[in-house]
Design a protein around this nucleic acid. Structure first.
Lengths: 212, 212, 212, 212
DNA sequence: CATGAATGAGCATTCATTCAT
DNA sequence: AATGAATGAATGCTCATTCAT
């Protein structure tokens, strides 16, 4: 049983969501993804999101405490899944080159497979501002790039990657990988095959690693 | 609609702009840049833009037919200037490597020097949707990347760049260069020195060109 | 409308309340008192009242036909208890002065002892309007002040109180006594000792009665 | 000229209001008074206030930054006028009894003459809560009762008033005078004649002052 | 040219109430 | 007897746009 309030909220510690509540939150996040992708963050109103989920807009407040809470959950879900994909792919790999390759391939594969969720999450992150005007991308970032930074730092220490300031090279590698997101944002049905096969060698060469 | 009145509009063929009209449009675009950079596209209202320009919001309609027209002009101006910078830098250069280097250095230098205008233009491009929901980046793109595409195509034909699908490699190079924009968007006072000195060799290596 | 169903309602003639129903109504009224005192009439929602009572808001409809019915019961209960207190204190007293003193002291003592219920009831009376906009204090009043009016009238007839229009003097005495309510509304933990000891002599002097 | 913003606000220092702006603010405050008196604070929506003022609700934001600002102005205006009335009446009077009599008579006369504004202001003060839930009457009070407190203190020091705790006696005198407000709140067309003629002797007797 | 004024649509949010289970 | 779920109306507020002067 949840706390006495009749409106379930976005309490992250609440592990006791009813079946229908879980389903509704799923529906709403999916509807938010679809709405943001179709009409953009700016025009993604609760009324429209609710319409797509088959729910009246005021009922959204029953599952999310606010529009911001819904969108933030969308973002967190998408990036958490992406992080888990790359973490799983890198785990067990030895050597900076192999680890970076695994990272990049998993990253691109995940974006390819979950393009709608990722595209919407990026749109939200780029567009959303908290109440005091702070953009979202100023909040996170440190943690998100930790794995990539560690791989690149290790590679430079091992001597297999060219030495560059870690902040610079991390940003450049991210920029290259995020090209996949840009592509699917522009065309949700784009074929990422060519990009996926060329981006990794492109990256390894740029780092000065042998592209064997 | 205002189109049929005698008030000056954003008609690109109208060569009859008065001195004061030109100045007012300048003020408004600059104010729009500052506003978008500070509070984000979402909260950049005409009232706020007018306030910064020292113009009452209802007078904005005299210089731009709509908010959209003002923002579009901001975007076009910023990207036109960027295009002219790189075009000027590339002109007269011979050889794909030298031309790409000139392109990239000019691109980064321009972003560094005109960071506010560029950051605002990108924010608008990413966030704005036309009335039917179409994002702005679907409109342009072909023309904007023509020079870069031609350089890369020539380089691959000359054999100095690795052969890759031109769309893919163009996108990747753009992604790397646009990292500079991301950086200044996140911190308007960021120092791009490290990025500028490392991004070009990074790019040339990625293309398989000797980094002589 | 619920009236025609078999669910128990706020029908005052219904003498067939189950034990649990009585208890639930008690809980809800107490929770309403606490809520109104803490957040004010305006923000005292059924959800919040239910939360404090440990009852889900939709279940409130089972014990009270509407929010208004709940609040009206709260009001009636508080004022009925106050009326019984003063009636009990006055009974058996002889002489207008003694009766008024008993009335005033009992009134102030009751407000002191039941400050939460009284404060909430007054807040509701002052703030609530029926659907057509009528305030609550237009409904009662005649009956509520009957005892006080009779004491004052008798006192004036006996010649121990100055002669004044009965409506005026009744209102003034009530105003003085209600000062206790104002005090506890502003500070629920206020000490009424000073007020209680000075208000009665104040009143008797104002009526021209010797303060023996 | 006012600051560049196109929406005039409730800046108290701005002494440069246009003619129409002053008139509109007057209309809106009057409409708010009428609305609060008729349907109560609770149901006094901006739409309804605007309707009575012949203005669309969104235009209210042009003259007042928020609903709260409008209501607070209503309150301040009413109480400032009341304060000026009593201050003017007391000025020049010598002796605590004469000063209190002047105070009370001016107070009652003002409430009689400006009953609508006063009744609405009191309703707002009693019902309104700031964003954090604080009622309005906790904010002021100190300053509002300063004159009355000083008169009563002086009277007790002079020995013409019975000695009582100043907080208690101030509250009781206020309670008596505020009876006039209660009366006009309950019936806007009530005749205060009887009350006005009897309340002052009532008060002076209660203070132990000779009622000659 | 420019302004103050006004409008109407759209927004997120709150809430009493209803209903199937 | 009770609950979670859902609804629809209402509210304060923002904003691009229009218009008379």
């Amino acid at each position: 049983m949840r706390s006495e309030t009749s409106t379930p909220q976005d309490d992250p510690t609440s592990s006791s969501r009813s079946f229908i509540e879980t389903a509704r939150r799923r529906q709403l996040i999916d509807a938010a993804v679809a709405t943001v992708n179709e009409v953009g963050y700016h025009r993604a109103s609760l009324a429209e999101i609710g319409r797509r989920a088959g729910i009246v807009k005021s009922a959204i407040g029953y599952y999310f405490s606010s529009k911001e809470a819904l969108l933030l959950e969308l973002v967190q879900e998408a990036f958490t899944a992406l992080g888990e994909s790359v973490l799983g792919a890198v785990s067990g790999r030895e050597g900076a080159t192999a680890r970076l390759r695994a990272y990049a391939e998993a990253y691109l594969a995940h974006v390819d497979a979950h393009r709608h969720a990722i595209a919407a999450a990026v749109e939200v992150v780029v567009s959303h501002r908290t109440a005091d005007g702070t953009p979202l991308y100023l909040v996170e970032d440190e943690e998100d790039t930790a794995l990539l930074r560690s791989i690149l730092t290790a590679g430079m220490d091992e001597g297999v990657f060219r030495r560059m300031p870690v902040a610079v090279v991390t940003g450049l590698v991210e920029a290259v990988l995020d090209r996949a997101i840009t592509v699917v944002q522009r065309d949700p049905r784009a074929d990422l095959g060519d990009l996926r096969s060329h981006a990794v060698p492109f990256l390894l060469r740029s780092l000065g690693a042998g592209d064997e």
